[in-house]
Protein backbone atom coordinates (compact mmCIF):
# COMPACT_ATOMS: atom_id res chain seq x y z
CA UNK A 1 0.00 0.00 0.00
CA UNK A 2 1.31 3.40 -0.97
CA UNK A 3 2.12 6.04 1.63
CA UNK A 4 -0.21 8.29 -0.33
CA UNK A 5 -3.14 5.96 0.33
CA UNK A 6 -2.23 5.72 4.01
CA UNK A 7 -2.64 9.48 4.16
CA UNK A 8 -6.32 9.09 3.26
CA UNK A 9 -7.23 5.98 5.25
CA UNK A 10 -9.28 6.12 8.41
CA UNK A 11 -10.61 3.47 10.72
CA UNK A 12 -13.60 1.68 9.16
CA UNK A 13 -15.59 1.51 12.37
CA UNK A 14 -18.58 3.78 12.52
CA UNK A 15 -17.85 4.75 16.13
CA UNK A 16 -14.39 6.01 15.14
CA UNK A 17 -15.56 8.14 12.21
CA UNK A 18 -16.37 11.12 14.38
CA UNK A 19 -13.11 11.19 16.31
CA UNK A 20 -9.85 12.82 15.30
CA UNK A 21 -7.75 9.94 16.62
CA UNK A 22 -9.01 7.60 13.88
CA UNK A 23 -6.78 9.38 11.39
CA UNK A 24 -4.03 8.64 10.55
CA UNK A 25 -3.76 4.91 11.11
CA UNK A 26 -0.45 4.06 12.69
CA UNK A 27 1.73 1.51 10.91
CA UNK A 28 3.27 -1.17 13.13
CA UNK A 29 5.85 -3.85 12.26
CA UNK A 30 5.78 -2.49 8.74
CA UNK A 31 8.07 -3.77 6.03
CA UNK A 32 8.59 -1.19 3.33
CA UNK A 33 9.19 -1.83 -0.32
CA UNK A 34 10.05 0.45 -3.20
CA UNK A 35 7.95 -0.14 -6.31
CA UNK A 36 9.12 1.96 -9.21
CA UNK A 37 6.42 3.78 -11.13
CA UNK A 38 6.38 6.42 -13.82
CA UNK A 39 6.56 10.01 -12.67
CA UNK A 40 3.22 11.75 -13.07
CA UNK A 41 3.81 15.45 -12.26
CA UNK A 42 0.25 16.56 -13.00
CA UNK A 43 -1.17 14.01 -10.61
CA UNK A 44 1.11 15.13 -7.80
CA UNK A 45 0.17 18.73 -8.42
CA UNK A 46 -3.50 17.72 -8.28
CA UNK A 47 -3.20 15.67 -5.10
CA UNK A 48 -0.82 17.88 -3.09
CA UNK A 49 -3.47 20.25 -1.64
CA UNK A 50 -5.43 17.27 -0.34
CA UNK A 51 -2.56 15.72 1.60
CA UNK A 52 -2.62 16.16 5.37
CA UNK A 53 0.96 17.23 5.78
CA UNK A 54 1.10 16.83 9.56
CA UNK A 55 -0.18 13.27 9.33
CA UNK A 56 2.35 12.54 6.61
CA UNK A 57 5.19 13.83 8.80
CA UNK A 58 3.98 11.73 11.70
CA UNK A 59 3.85 8.58 9.59
CA UNK A 60 7.32 9.26 8.17
CA UNK A 61 8.69 9.47 11.71
CA UNK A 62 6.92 6.26 12.71
CA UNK A 63 8.26 4.43 9.67
CA UNK A 64 11.77 5.72 10.24
CA UNK A 65 11.89 7.67 6.99
CA UNK A 66 13.77 10.97 6.72
CA UNK A 67 12.04 13.83 8.52
CA UNK A 68 9.95 16.13 6.37
CA UNK A 69 9.94 19.94 6.57
CA UNK A 70 7.39 21.58 8.88
CA UNK A 71 5.18 23.04 6.19
CA UNK A 72 3.78 21.53 3.02
CA UNK A 73 5.62 22.65 -0.13
CA UNK A 74 4.04 25.31 -2.29
CA UNK A 75 2.56 24.08 -5.58
CA UNK A 76 4.80 26.58 -7.35
CA UNK A 77 7.90 24.80 -6.05
CA UNK A 78 7.05 21.61 -7.93
CA UNK A 79 8.09 22.92 -11.30
CA UNK A 80 11.10 24.84 -12.42
CA UNK A 81 10.62 27.88 -14.61
CA UNK A 82 9.55 26.93 -18.12
CA UNK A 83 12.29 26.92 -20.67
CA UNK A 84 10.08 28.41 -23.35
CA UNK A 85 8.74 31.93 -22.69
CA UNK A 86 5.34 31.86 -21.02
CA UNK A 87 3.40 33.67 -23.73
CA UNK A 88 4.21 31.13 -26.44
CA UNK A 89 2.75 28.18 -24.52
CA UNK A 90 -0.60 29.51 -23.50
CA UNK A 91 -2.55 26.86 -25.39
CA UNK A 92 -0.28 24.04 -24.37
CA UNK A 93 -1.07 21.86 -21.38
CA UNK A 94 0.08 23.82 -18.38
CA UNK A 95 2.79 22.13 -16.40
CA UNK A 96 3.67 19.56 -19.02
CA UNK A 97 6.17 21.94 -20.55
CA UNK A 98 7.80 22.78 -17.27
CA UNK A 99 10.62 20.81 -15.79
CA UNK A 100 9.83 18.79 -12.64
CA UNK A 101 12.08 19.79 -9.74
CA UNK A 102 13.97 17.57 -7.34
CA UNK A 103 11.26 18.26 -4.76
CA UNK A 104 8.61 16.78 -7.03
CA UNK A 105 10.72 13.71 -7.62
CA UNK A 106 11.23 13.27 -3.88
CA UNK A 107 7.50 13.55 -3.30
CA UNK A 108 6.88 10.99 -6.02
CA UNK A 109 9.38 8.68 -4.38
CA UNK A 110 7.76 9.03 -0.98
CA UNK A 111 4.08 9.07 -1.87
CA UNK A 112 3.80 6.73 -4.82
CA UNK A 113 6.86 4.48 -4.82
CA UNK A 114 7.29 3.75 -1.13
CA UNK A 115 4.79 1.05 -0.19
CA UNK A 116 3.98 -0.99 2.88
CA UNK A 117 4.36 -4.64 1.95
CA UNK A 118 3.41 -6.30 5.22
CA UNK A 119 2.56 -5.12 8.70
CA UNK A 120 -0.35 -3.79 10.65
CA UNK A 121 -2.29 -0.55 10.75
CA UNK A 122 -3.58 0.44 14.15
CA UNK A 123 -6.42 2.84 14.83
CA UNK A 124 -5.47 5.48 17.38
CA UNK A 125 -8.97 5.56 18.82
CA UNK A 126 -10.24 1.99 19.18
CA UNK A 127 -6.93 0.16 18.80
CA UNK A 128 -8.25 -2.14 16.09
CA UNK A 129 -5.46 -3.70 14.05
CA UNK A 130 -5.83 -4.03 10.30
CA UNK A 131 -3.46 -6.58 8.84
CA UNK A 132 -1.55 -5.79 5.67
CA UNK A 133 -0.32 -8.74 3.63
CA UNK A 134 1.41 -8.52 0.27
CA UNK A 135 0.34 -4.88 0.10
CA UNK A 136 -3.35 -5.69 0.59
CA UNK A 137 -4.94 -4.36 3.76
CA UNK A 138 -7.79 -6.31 5.28
CA UNK A 139 -10.58 -3.90 6.18
CA UNK A 140 -13.27 -6.51 6.65
CA UNK A 141 -14.88 -5.98 10.03
CA UNK A 142 -16.61 -8.66 12.06
CA UNK A 143 -20.29 -7.86 12.26
CA UNK A 144 -20.25 -6.79 15.92
CA UNK A 145 -17.77 -4.00 15.09
CA UNK A 146 -19.65 -2.49 12.14
Amino acid sequence: MKILTLNFLTCARKACKATNAAFPLHPRDAELEIVETDLNPLFIRNILPRIEWDALREICVELGLPTLPDAAPEPAALFAEPIVPADTMQDADEGAEKQPTQLLQDLHRLLLETTIATGKLVCGNCGHEYAVKEGIANFLLPSHLV
Binding site: F8, A137, F139
Partner: peptide
Protein backbone atom coordinates in the same frame (compact mmCIF):
# COMPACT_ATOMS: atom_id res chain seq x y z
CA UNK B 1 -1.84 -9.33 -7.28
CA UNK B 2 -0.53 -11.85 -9.79
CA UNK B 3 -1.22 -9.42 -12.61
CA UNK B 4 0.72 -6.74 -10.70
CA UNK B 5 -1.88 -4.02 -11.09
CA UNK B 6 -0.79 -0.52 -10.18
CA UNK B 7 -3.58 0.44 -7.78
CA UNK B 8 -3.67 -0.17 -4.06
CA UNK B 9 -5.94 -3.03 -3.12
CA UNK B 10 -8.14 -3.45 -0.06
CA UNK B 11 -10.06 -6.46 1.15
CA UNK B 12 -13.18 -4.67 2.28
CA UNK B 13 -16.95 -4.88 2.16
CA UNK B 14 -18.44 -1.78 0.54
CA UNK B 15 -21.64 -2.46 2.48
CA UNK B 16 -19.71 -1.67 5.67
CA UNK B 17 -18.81 1.79 4.47
CA UNK B 18 -15.83 3.38 2.75
CA UNK B 19 -12.87 3.84 5.13
CA UNK B 20 -11.41 7.04 3.74
CA UNK B 21 -11.36 10.53 5.10
CA UNK B 22 -13.70 13.17 3.65
CA UNK B 23 -12.83 14.68 0.29
Amino acid sequence: LEKEVEGDLFLADAGQGVPFRPG
